[in-house]
Amino acid sequence: MPETRATDGISLDVRRGEIFGLLGPNGAGKSTLVRQLTGLLRPDTGSVTLLGHDLVGHPERASRLLAYLGQESTALDELTVALAAETTGRLRGLGARQARAARDAVLEELGLTEIAGRPLKKLSGGQRRLACFAAALVGERPVLVLDEPTTGMDPVARRAVWSAVDRRRERHGATVLLVTHNVIEAETVLDRVAVVDQGKVIACDTPAGLKAKVSGEVRLELVWRTGAPREVPEVAALAPLAVASGRRWVLRLPPDEARAAVAAVTGGPAFAALDDFTLATPSLEDVYLALGGRMKGLVKA
């Protein structure tokens, strides 16, 4: 069997107090990286240093430095929200009274007090995720490692998550490592982001810095009513440049060419076949694709 490398030659430096993101599609190697940082997986080679501690030599120290929110909630599913938070606090070393106080404070902070008595598995996906996030916050840690924390959440719950994270940064300079495949979230909450693809970091910068790399291009999206009218010469000329998925074409073009393309499809005979079009400045998804990212699976929500 050939050797499989989940992550290969990755070198990252996360600064204290920043929200650092790992962005990439599912299967890119983000979770492997996180498992190495949380002491769940020992890397074959290389080093992991967290707040001055060598985690390859002492993986058990990870749990005393960071709080981890994984993607699975099966360990907590049958507990009530309150008991899940309190038990996690106790297992993070808090005394009984401290754990109860921390539980009440966190549930209040996240707006979970009303559903504190309900078992997690009876909640919606977003509420359950928020309850697991609450458990991760009980028993403060200087580092938070959050693996897609807002999956399934409504905007109110998302805001509660990011406000809670911000409060911890302000209060004691907490560092956050966020794993996400959500492009919009990455652009709005992250200080810096590493773009991961097939086990390698293909770029690492601020979201604005990354977008500047592809600022010479704009994105043109065309949606056809049924299919593209390839008999129109202007459309036929655009076809090799387009990434087509069903009725949708996505093109990345220099601004003047994009303007010309818009004029061509909205002016001539192609307009009858056009359902919708958008012209936009590049997003992190465009950065990912422009840098050679080959996998699909980034989401915009």
Binding site: I10, S11, L12, D13, V14, R15, R16, L33, Q36, L37, G46, S47, V48, T49, L50, L51, G52, H53, R61, R64, L65, R90, L91, R92, G93, G139, R141, P142, V143, T175, L177
Partner: peptide, 17 residues
């Protein structure tokens, strides 16, 4: 991978048995 190599942070206590 490293996070802040400046000062060594204090470890939180373990949960007792």
């Amino acid at each position: 991978m490293s996070a802040g190599a400046v000062a060594v942070a204090e470890l939180a206590p373990r949960a007792r048995f």
